[in-house]
Amino acid sequence: MSVEQHIPNDQFLQKLTAFYRDSKIRGPRSVYVTMKPYDGRTKATPKANTFKEGDEVSCIFRAKWGSKKIATEVKAKEVNKFHTQYSAIIIAQMVNLEKRKKTEDEKKKTGATKA
């Protein structure tokens, strides 16, 4: 999928949930999610150019799992709704996180810094 083709927000959240579910089932692959400001341009611009006063700025969310990529554009008016749905997905996926066990060397280092 190219960057110019964005899927609807609801479909993005469904596929993101599927990415997380598949990453649990099919092995330890990471799901990468990025968020950036987006003004609708598809070509790169020089760094000196920034958003202008009249530009309608939105966010672009991209997710990657293995070789699969998805992207969606979230308009400024829909950010709060999208963020609550996205947060619910992230919180639901934190169930299987485990605290990493410290080795003896790490315990000694943290003990030395506290003293």
Rank of each mutant, 00 (worst) to 15 (best):
S2W: 09
V3M: 10
E4Y: 08
Q5C: 10
I7V: 09
I7Y: 02
P8H: 05
P8A: 13
P8K: 05
P8R: 04
Q14I: 15
Q14K: 13
K15M: 12
T17V: 12
T17K: 12
T17L: 09
A18K: 13
F19M: 03
F19V: 01
Y20R: 05
D22K: 08
D22T: 05
D22H: 07
D22R: 06
D22A: 10
S23Y: 01
K24N: 14
K24Y: 11
I25P: 01
I25C: 09
I25T: 15
G27F: 02
G27T: 05
P28A: 10
V31R: 00
Y32R: 08
T34V: 02
K36P: 00
Y38L: 00
Y38T: 00
D39C: 08
G40W: 03
T42Y: 10
K43E: 12
A44K: 04
K47S: 15
A48I: 08
N49R: 15
N49E: 15
T50D: 11
T50R: 12
K52F: 08
K52C: 06
K52T: 07
E53K: 12
G54W: 11
D55Q: 08
E56S: 07
V57L: 07
S58K: 09
S58F: 04
C59K: 08
F61I: 00
F61G: 01
F61E: 00
F61Y: 10
R62C: 05
K64R: 13
K64G: 00
W65E: 03
W65V: 02
W65N: 03
G66A: 00
S67P: 08
K68Q: 13
I70D: 00
T72C: 14
T72W: 03
V74C: 00
K75M: 11
K77I: 14
K77V: 14
V79P: 00
N80W: 13
H83K: 12
T84D: 13
T84C: 10
Q85F: 01
Q85L: 09
S87A: 11
A88D: 14
A88M: 11
I89Q: 05
I90H: 06
I91Y: 11
A92P: 01
A92L: 05
Q93Y: 02
V95Q: 14
N96C: 03
N96P: 01
L97E: 10
K101E: 13
K101C: 07
K101L: 05
T103F: 06
E104I: 10
E104V: 04
D105R: 06
E106M: 03
K107T: 03
K108N: 14
K108H: 06
K109D: 05
K109S: 08
T110E: 15
T110C: 11
T110N: 06
A112K: 02
K114D: 07
A115W: 06
